[in-house]
Design a protein around this nucleic acid. Sequence first.
RNA 1: GCGCCCGUAGCUCAGCUGGAUAGAGCAACGGAUUUCUAAUCCGUAGGUCAGGAGUUCGAAUCUCUUCGGGCGCGCCA
Length: 598
Amino acid sequence: MKPVLEILEQRISKALRQTTGLAVCPAIVRPTADGRFGDYQVNGIMPAAKQLKTNPRQLAEKVVAQMNISDICQPVEIAGPGFINLRLKPEFLANALLEIYKDKKLGIEQTANSQTVVVDYSGPNIAKQMHVGHLRSTIIGDCVSRMLECLGHNVIRQNHIGDWGTQFGMLIAYFNHFYLNPSIAAHPGQDHYAVLNDSLRISDLEDFYRKAKELYDKDPEFAEESRRVVVKLHSHDLAIQSHWQHIVDESREHYQPIYKRLNVTLTSKDECGESVYADKLPDVVKTLKDKKLAVESVGAICVFPEGFKSKEGEPLPFIVQKSDGAFLYATTDLAAIRFRLQDLHANRVIYVTDARQALHFKMLFAVVKMAGWADESVKLEHVTFGTMLGADGKPFKTRTGGTVKLAELLDEAVERAKAVVDEKNPDLPEQQRQKIAQAVGIGAVKYADYSNNRDSDYIFSFDKMLAMDGNTAPYMQYAYARIRSIERKAEQEGLNIQKELTGICEILLSDPAEQALARQLIQYSQAILNAAADCRPNYLTGYLYELSQAFSRFYNVCPVLQSEGQIRAARLVLCDVTARTIRHGMTELLGIEVPEQM
RNA sequence: GCGCCCGUAGCUCAGCUGGAUAGAGCAACGGAUUUCUAAUCCGUAGGUCAGGAGUUCGAAUCUCUUCGGGCGCGCCA
């Protein structure tokens, strides 16, 4: 089902072109900011009139005479300097609502040109626990993936895990030095790797990591040993590699449950980390050299894309091989993007990482274009986001200044939600309260992130995100629970909603609150399109909030079960479509559960 | 020094290729409950959209500039 906005845009644009003879003059139809101006307004008359040096109101009249929207809108009104105000016909609104009611996909239109879209997100570091810094990439990327998929694109998720850096040299060297070697010395002949691997947990790893880093920084001998281990790992030394594999597996055991808690769709199948590209790096550099793009500079191999300057105003290098011969993240990113373009045949590649890496990606994309790996039609995008801040406006840290572990953050959110559920709904069984707390707590954290414009930094506050008022997960969940409650009550009273609505072919929307709710409901498809186009989940949360508000207003003035006949049928349809829309938006697109009761 | 992002109500934030009198929530004040979950709804008050200049029928939005905050800029990722 085509969004109304799109139909209006097309038809009015056509009339505008016919009237003016201009090849390009969009109607620019937008929802009105103010209800007094109707449901939609046409903004495109004035720019067109400007171009033709004619009076906008007169042009508007001609366009109105030319356009054919009488099946959708009431007689239009020309207002202000040259706006055309559009009001949907009640019959049209009712029919559109009915159509959505009958559509399993709630009127969401499948895209006509489906693309293969690679979305690179989350990318946790192996051997470290996930912390709050990983939250935004993980959930924003997940929402973007879900939205694009929902619109009919072929989404390939890529979890570019950090599993190949120098940190493994340190980690394994440290481990050998302090654990393995003493163990061998004390008990020769045992399978020490197996014993140690079994006892190695992520929390240990992290501790080792910190200590190893310290040692690495102050002990040149240990640093040298670490580098030797990295070389061994990279040359596929079996013992070292099995150790590495264990660390990777152990880390996965840590972050997969977090994905599950967060209701993030990433699975181990989506993992395609640094190590996967390790063997391709020499060829990447060679290819760039062969194309005369990569050249030596101060001992390193660099590409100099146009338009990038260093502090000194000189051309800024994109270093693909260090002077010691080692490859670095730029090389890996090149190998990865080449794979995505040439082997995965991506039409669009989206990187969801924080804004600090903007320059890196600009240069990366520039090099890709120089190398000719992507044709003009391919879109390479860096979807950036700001930092999570604490109440003091500084980067979010624990009281002692450490990084906040994601698992602990989620624990606290659930704990706080549980306290509220216990207070508000003590009669529900403990197990159910626990489940609700889970949905509310985790949902609140995710929703708070989604509802902010991703460009800006935002202040993390449990109190704000768990509030029942305002643009929060609990508000949305509450609206949903109320609808389900109506349906439960109906069933208790022996009313079979399914039966009541079977074969319904006409809806009567008489109350303004009903109409307002219906108007909101038929715009769902458009809201997803807008959010997906710019990779901005906050457009979607904004829509869902307006929807829930429209529902709450309706709920307050339009009793459902006390009403009768056609009115009750219409209200039941409104409830049904609202519930399904909220559930779809929250569950399918944002990955936030909506409890049946709360 | 150069580049990117940000600056909107007391606080936290929206504002969709430029559109009409800039919107929410919190906090403050006043109302609504014999009714399907009041975790709700309605109303009042609150603004030099950081400052200035420009583009134009029209600017929070585009351009330039100043100020303030954050981040980045050759072998880390």
